[in-house]
Design a protein around this nucleic acid. Structure first.
Length: 340
DNA sequence: AAAATGCACAACCGCATGGGT
DNA sequence: CACCCATGCGGTTGTGCATTT
């Protein structure tokens, strides 16, 4: 039984022989693939077009990178997967020379197991219930299990102002057009004046981070934990933002204690609604984190006009760790080992 | 040494999507 | 607007090799 797309043809299935590979490579390098459904006939192959396409993309393409994944690639996969989930094709776009199939296989055969071994849910990157409970109990003295966050969404930001979105419901980053969502490397400082914005890795266009459902009054705002600790709900009804610190820590107890000498506050991430908040500038590692930019037409964009200011993505990443754990605060997160 | 098991990778399958008619 | 077709994508299965029993 052949593919539905080529049931009329007598097609071969299974592993490709070197001769078949040779025919396909010669044809495509000479003529290009054009219409894939026509390739098998023109190349003299008894395969369906779909199979030819897959073989070319996953194995024969000359720009493919061979060999095992590097630690850097592994970290990128984990980081992007945390946000995008199983969107292998999107993840693979951040890894030149790697295919979605390759990334998927690597995830299923290696990374997934590592995360599980570390007590992390590979789907959400959150601590699995027992582990999370342990983590909280290490850091909190006055809590009840019912206060623990129940959300399994790793990175949830409410995007308000469009179509009168119900403020009680949040829009996951999974709803964001992946093409518009790009991640700088963790150790890259976005405001580095010497790095042209167009040259950032993982970038599909000039927008570093942008939301598909753009807010008429968009701004993306990092505020200090104190400014939102008064709310017991993750959603601030007045200003309309999701308070991650409340989501992930009961009673406003800081979920993220970065414990760094030059920072006064633990940064939290807020998608600000109709009202612009007046916030103090937040200094992290001596740098200003201020993403209020009401002149910006993009839903979310990190301003690179602050000369001398830099935004440490690694810090952002750590701040966004959804597990409600202290990153570097002496808990199991420090014990993460990435050895196979 | 042979069978059983595990693993990584390649390939397939079915569905979604978009363009053309 | 409905239909067809090609393509892209993610989940799943198949295959061959390595390791364990």
């Amino acid at each position: 039984m052949g593919h539905h797309c080529c049931s009329k043809q007598k097609v071969k299935r299974g592993l490709w022989s070197p001769e078949e590979d040779d025919k396909l490579v010669k044809y495509i390098t000479t003529h290009g693939h054009g219409c894939w459904s026509a390739v098998p006939k023109l190349a003299g192959l008894q395969r369906c077009g779909k199979s030819c396409r897959l073989r070319w993309i996953n194995y024969l393409r000359p720009d493919l990178k061979r060999g095992s994944f590097t630690e850097e690639e592994e970290r990128i996969i984990i980081d992007v997967h945390r946000i995008l989930g199983n969107r292998w094709a999107q993840i693979a776009k951040h890894l030149p020379g790697r295919t979605d199939n390759e990334v998927k296989n690597f995830w299923n055969s290696c990374i997934k197991k590592k995360l599980v071994a570390q007590g992390l849910d590979p789907k959400t990157h959150n601590l699995m219930p027992t582990s999370r409970s342990n983590s909280y109990s290490n850091n909190l003295t006055n809590n009840s299990s019912s206060q623990f966050p129940s959300s399994t969404t790793p990175f949830t930001i409410s995007s308000l102002g469009k179509n009168n979105i119900d403020p009680t419901k949040s829009t996951s980053l999974l709803d964001i057009d992946p093409a518009l969502l790009t991640l700088p490397p963790q150790n890259l400082l976005i405001n580095q004046p010497n790095i042209p914005i167009a040259n950032y890795p993982y970038q599909d266009n000039s927008v570093l981070m942008s939301f598909k459902d753009q807010n008429p009054n968009p701004s993306f705002d990092f505020t200090n934990a104190a400014s939102c600790s008064s709310s017991s709900s993750p959603f601030n009804q007045t200003n309309g933002f999701i308070d991650e610190s409340v989501m992930w820590a009961p009673n406003g107890i800081d979920a993220m204690d970065l414990s760094q000498p030059n920072e006064g506050v633990a940064p939290t991430i807020h998608a600000v609604g109709q009202q612009q908040q007046t916030q103090p500038q937040n200094y992290v590692n001596g740098r200003v984190m201020d993403f209020n930019d009401t002149t910006n037409e993009k839903g979310m964009e990190i301003d690179d006009n602050y000369a001398g200011n830099a935004f440490d993505i690694e810090l952002m990443e750590s701040a966004l760790m959804p597990c409600g754990m202290l990153y570097g605060g002496g808990n199991s997160m420090e014990q993460l080992q990435w050895d196979c």
